[in-house]
């Protein structure tokens, strides 16, 4: 993509224009997306696109190599009964599991994303965060999902947050950096917008809503607000930024509504897993059930779809 070649201009965080957000207006706008009717061919196509955008994720204290291997197998074999299904976009794991995951998906095109920077709290010194990130990269991670320092953000230390992101981006080198805002802790859409802008201007390749550990996570309102930040940045600079809602998107319907939103705000160019991802684990099977329903004409049971 030619867009990636454009060098980002460094702007001091104090000089970023983040418009204020009226939450009720956002809710009304989101309701419009939700009222779109996606049927027949466009539904089937949409479901397949969504499937291909999933970052299949396991981020638990009890993760083991065995669990990660199973998940990776699922990533590559979503539903072998159906021959023409895409795979998911990536698997997302802790740094300690990156090497295992990498071996499982090697050569398949499915990427390995690693969370880092003292995920999920981000409560660690910068040098620890850099080492955490470097470790994941050394283990073979293609993508890094960092968390921002929400405490610093909420106490108004925007420069700190900006600099931290810029440093991690520097560490990442060619690996794509997703910046998790943990919007459930930011409380207001104004904060979500401001954090989105800081992340984008500091070097994020992707902005991501949540860790999955905090509720609410990827609500349509939050994703909408972040997509508008992506759009404004693109309109201003011509540089594309990716978006990843994560947590809480477990149904096909909601996934399709997210696609509608991406399409109508950013356009079809963003409708690939290069620019849009879903951080989710149970979404994949719901989409698979929908696809099978559309193709067979009968409603499906989860008994027929492998959970891992």
């Amino acid at each position: 993509m030619k867009n990636k070649l454009v060098k980002k201009e460094i702007i001091h965080p104090d000089n970023i224009y983040s418009p204020s957000i009226d939450k009720v207006g956002v809710e009304e706008r989101v309701a419009r997306f939700q009222s779109r009717s996606i049927k027949n061919e466009s539904k089937l196509q949409g479901l397949k696109i969504a499937l291909n955008m999933i970052d299949l994720t396991t981020l638990e204290g009890k993760d083991t190599p065995g669990k990660v291997k199973q998940m990776c197998y699922k990533a590559l074999h979503l539903h072998d009964v159906h021959p023409n299904l895409p795979s998911v976009a990536a698997v997302c794991v802790y740094p300690s599991m990156v090497r295992i995951a990498k071996n499982e998906v090697k050569g398949t095109g499915v990427k390995v994303a690693s969370v880092s920077t003292a995920f999920p709290s981000g409560q660690a010194p910068l040098d620890v965060k850099i080492r955490d990130t470097q470790f994941a990269l050394d283990e073979g991670a293609d993508e890094i999902d960092m968390v921002i320092s929400r405490g610093k953000f909420l106490s108004g230390e925007y420069n700190f947050v900006f600099d931290e992101i810029a440093k991690i981006k520097e560490t990442c080198g060619k690996a794509r950096l997703k910046v998790i805002l943990e919007t459930g802790e930011l409380a207001t859409l104004d904060n979500v917008r401001k954090a989105s802008d800081i992340a984008i201007y500091a070097g994020a390749d992707f902005i991501k809503t949540s860790t999955g550990k905090i509720q609410p996570a990827a609500t349509m309102q939050v994703t909408y607000t972040m997509l508008m930040a992506v759009k404004d940045y693109y309109d201003k600079t011509g540089i594309m930024i990716g978006m990843k809602p994560a947590g809480g998107i477990s149904t096909s319907k909601l996934a399709l509504h997210n696609l509608v939103m991406v399409k109508e705000i950013l356009g079809n160019a963003w409708l690939t897993n290069e620019w849009f991802r879903f951080g989710a684990s149970s979404l994949a099977n719901d989409i698979l059930m929908q696809i099978m329903k559309m193709e067979t004409g009968v409603y499906q049971s989860s008994d027929y779809f492998s959970i891992d």
Partner: peptide, 18 residues
């Protein structure tokens, strides 16, 4: 090396008549 192209390229996802 990529065995399988992992990007579903979509240039025109449009809404079917409803």
């Amino acid at each position: 090396a990529t065995k399988k192209k992992n990007t579903e390229h979509v240039s025109d996802w449009n809404y079917s008549p409803s």
